[in-house]
Nucleic acid binder design. Structure first.
Length: 593
DNA sequence: GCCGTTTTCGGCCCGACTGTTTTCAGTCG
């Protein structure tokens, strides 16, 4: 992620541009530039980092277009324009010329920021982590005013921790969520009536796809606070205690996840839950809105800027309403337009799990699933669904016992027989068909035409170049019998990067051809992710949320797929498997004229 | 450097914590 491409004239990605802007902010801060200027660069960097499309698509060779990005004004727009046109930035070259590169590594050490780094450099000529370590070990840092023995210790510990690289592993939501539920319920049991209210906050509550650490919030009467902290640090999930005070404790759990618990009084609940849910950017914007109304907002309460009056809002709803805003679902709190919508009382009515009427990707024991079609169907019926599509793998995926045309016929006979059993439920004949490396498909059109619907996906040759894999997928989507493109990027969270697929182009083709895109809910996939869902939604591309279940228990994953959809601002009407099959059938491109 | 249902100039989120300080600066979330 660091700025590495400065000398090369080539494609700059959003992430790289953001990294460059962050670095400019760091340099300016080291140089003692006014803090608001550095804040401005960081804000622009953050916005670009979280854009839901390639910045080039916004830019289109005109710097003015870049100013539609929040936090990007004339000066930064011109700099990005120069970068995209020429591949380099004179301003950056100029300000970075005299900065030793090692400085940026020093700044990665916890508790060492730009001010500290500047003093180390200017007063002690320390320009690398190695030099810093030597000086700290020799006790030389404490000779400088403002540095003491503890600072030396902290720096050495920080360097050590960084070398062991133990931090910064984020946990997938599919793992973190049930874990958090367990911790919450055990704490409830341990504390009984002492707990008035309890909720996980932070990125878990916002349902981000991965979680850095877990924030749990408890409200209780003041005298009970220490008892709750004590009970918390004694939970069986606790491995190490980092910090333990009267209202706050921080622990490392047995699975390596850090859990921060905060206990407060019921009157603070509304502001505290709002604050600890985040995101940081959302909170900054919320506090700005408060200020514009003469109110200062903290996690404790509102304060009138003039009169020093404290105003408590015991619920989150009241906290937002105090600012003239609709209550905002946590999934939307990313400073991505939700505050404007909340002010206009125009927030989307987000899709819910209970809106789904069926599931369009799952596997049976005909390929790599472990249950019969009937077992999957009965489990689906028990959930109140009206239809499922059986999408076993096609022959191209031999490793998963992919179906040949002959076995397919046997499977269809089984499905036909099953469908006589139910009046209000139907098993659809489908397939998860492999798109071969050259873009050809596993079955000829005359077979594809006989399915109720067809999913395609890629499992092999995922390392193809951007051009190759994009052409391969585009070719498949242009087939009139290909209805759904499943888990488009092929990523496996924490294990496999997504393919180089040009999603903007895929989205364009999907829109043109009427191909549906999938959110695969398997917790290790979550593909499309939230950001891509939002983009697809903006382009008006229909979405389905599928479980990709290999057993009835696998249906539970839909909860996480729905979370991605919600983070992508989808309403029920944007998700095609909220429709009855009769209606959904009409929306498939194979059935359109 | 950015930005505007009180401002095109004059502001810019807030508090906890830490370590070093005789009252505060830096970092973090």
């Amino acid at each position: 992620m660091p700025v590495k491409k400065l000398e090369v004239t080539q494609r700059w990605t959003n992430q790289e541009i953001a990294a460059l802007l962050y670095r400019i902010a760091d340099i300016l801060e080291i140089q003692g530039e006014i803090v608001f200027k550095t804040v401005a660069y960081r804000r622009a960097a953050d916005a670009i980092e979280h854009l839901n499309r390639d910045i080039r698509d916004i830019w289109q060779n005109d710097p003015k277009n870049l100013r539609s990005i929040s936090g990007v004004g004339e000066a930064i727009a011109d700099k990005i324009d120069e970068l995209l046109r020429t591949g380099e930035l004179k301003y950056y070259k100029k300000i970075s010329k005299d900065i030793p590169v090692g400085i940026f590594d020093i700044m990665k050490i916890p508790d060492v920021g730009p001010k500290t780094v500047a003093r180390l450099w200017q007063e002690m000529k320390i320009t690398s982590v190695d030099k810093l370590e030597k000086a700290a070990r020799a006790g030389k840092l404490r000779t400088v005013k403002g540095f003491g023995a503890k600072t030396e210790e902290k720096i050495l510990a920080g360097i050590d921790a960084q070398r062991r690289k133990k931090s910064s592993t984020r946990v997938p939501i599919g793992t973190a969520y049930p874990f958090a539920q367990n911790v919450v319920s055990e704490l409830r049991v341990a504390c009984g009536d002492l707990i008035r209210d309890i909720a996980p906050a932070g990125s878990l509550r916002r349902m981000k796809q991965t979680i850095g650490d877990l924030d749990i919030l408890v409200s209780a009467d003041l005298p009970d606070h220490p008892k709750i902290i004590d009970a918390f640090v004694k939970l069986p999930q606790v491995q190490d205690i980092n910090a333990k005070g009267p209202t706050k404790a921080s622990i490392i759990a047995v699975n390596g996840l850090q859990i921060d618990l905060r206990v407060l009084e019921p009157k603070n609940w509304g502001t505290a839950l709002q604050y600890f849910t985040g995101s940081k950017e959302h909170n900054i914007a919320v506090r700005q809105i408060a200020l514009s109304q003469g109110l200062s907002l903290s996690e404790w309460c509102f304060t009138t800027v003039k009169g020093e009056n404290e105003i408590f809002t015991p619920t989150e709803q009241e906290t937002y309403e105090k600012l003239g805003l609709q209550w905002i679902p946590p999934e939307l709190r990313e400073a991505n337009g939700e505050l404007e919508a909340a002010r206009e009382k125009n927030l989307p009515r987000l899709v819910e799990l209970s809106n789904l009427k069926g599931d369009l990707q799952m596997h049976s024991n005909w390929s790599d699933g472990s249950f019969t079609i009937e077992q999957m169907a009965e489990a689906a019926r028990a959930r109140g669904w009206k239809y499922i599509a059986i999408t076993d793998h096609s022959q191209g995926l031999g490793i998963a016992r992919g179906l040949t045309p002959e076995r397919l016929k046997q499977q269809w006979a089984e499905i036909d027989a099953l469908n006589k059993k139910w009046k209000d439920f139907v098993v659809l004949k489908s397939i998860e068909m492999e798109i071969h490396a050259d873009g050809s498909l596993d079955f000829p059109d005359d077979i594809l035409a006989q399915f109720d619907l067809v999913l395609v996906s890629t499992h092999s040759a995922l390392k193809q170049t951007r051009e190759k894999i994009t052409a391969r997928v585009v070719k498949a989507l242009q087939n009139p019998y290909v209805d759904i493109f499943a888990h488009p990027t092929g990523r496996l969270i924490g294990t496999r990067e997504e393919s180089a697929l040009d999603l903007e182009q895929v989205f364009r083709v999907a829109k043109e051809t009427g191909t549906i895109l999938e959110i695969d809910s398997a917790p290790e996939r979550l593909d499309l992710d939230d950001v891509r869902v939002r983009r697809a939604h903006d382009l008006g591309i229909p979405i389905v949320i599928d479980s990709d279940a290999h057993s009835p228990a696998g249906f539970d994953a839909l909860f996480f797929g729905v979370a991605m959809a919600r983070r992508g601002w989808l309403e029920a009407k944007d998700v095609l498997n909220t429709l009855e099959w009769k209606e959904l059938k009409r929306r498939l491109k194979r059935n359109k004229k």
